[in-house]
């Protein structure tokens, strides 16, 4: 089986971690291996703090200007709000993007390798005016930045 197929199918049979410890994966992948399972509980968490704790444990996040969240001040369509997050911290490992007003706050997680810039653009649904929160694991610590977005028509209902 190709390595990339294996990653996608991480939930079936052997875990990626088991393979890594057996020395069957190249070092880059071993160091940066994505979690082999989608974090079900964190995406289903209805409280922001609960999602945060499931992802990062009890570590407190240090506010920083080194994470920039770009989003419109006012979004006319909450179904499609463009968000670009740029991380200017050494050794960025992962980024979690959350909204404090969505029924399920966790929107997206990115797992970086050194082969990419720690900058990701996506479009998200915001049910109401909200604060976007970026939590970033980098340089052995946890960092956070926020950005307020006013939504004039929500994007979570019918």
């Amino acid at each position: 089986m190709l390595r990339r197929q294996f990653i996608r199918r991480g939930g079936e049979g052997l875990s990626l971690a088991a393979l890594a410890s057996a020395g069957l994966l190249p070092s880059l992948l071993r160091a940066e291996a994505p979690s082999d399972a989608w974090p079900t509980e964190a995406f289903h968490a209805e409280q922001l703090d609960r999602a945060r704790q499931l992802l990062f444990g009890s570590a407190s996040a240090e506010p920083t200007d080194a994470i920039l969240i770009e989003a419109p001040d006012i979004a006319e369509n909450g179904r499609m709000v463009p968000v670009t997050t740029t991380v200017d911290l050494p050794q960025p490992r992962s980024l979690a993007l959350l909204s404090d007003e969505n029924p399920f706050p966790l929107l997206a997680l990115a797992h970086f390798t050194p082969a990419v810039a720690a900058t990701v653009s996506v479009r998200v649904k915001l049910g109401a005016s909200a604060k976007l929160i970026a939590l970033v694991e980098a340089d052995g610590g946890l960092y956070r930045a926020t950005r307020a977005v006013k939504v004039t028509a929500g994007g979570c209902g019918g």
């Binding site: 499609m80 929107l107 970086f112 082969a115 479009r123």
Partner: peptide, 20 residues
């Protein structure tokens, strides 16, 4: 070679856009 992976929820907009 994998360079980035993403886990998404249903809060990502329809017909998702991704730039990196």
């Amino acid at each position: 070679k994998p360079v980035m992976t993403l886990d998404w929820g249903w809060g990502i907009s329809a017909n998702p856009y991704l730039a990196f």
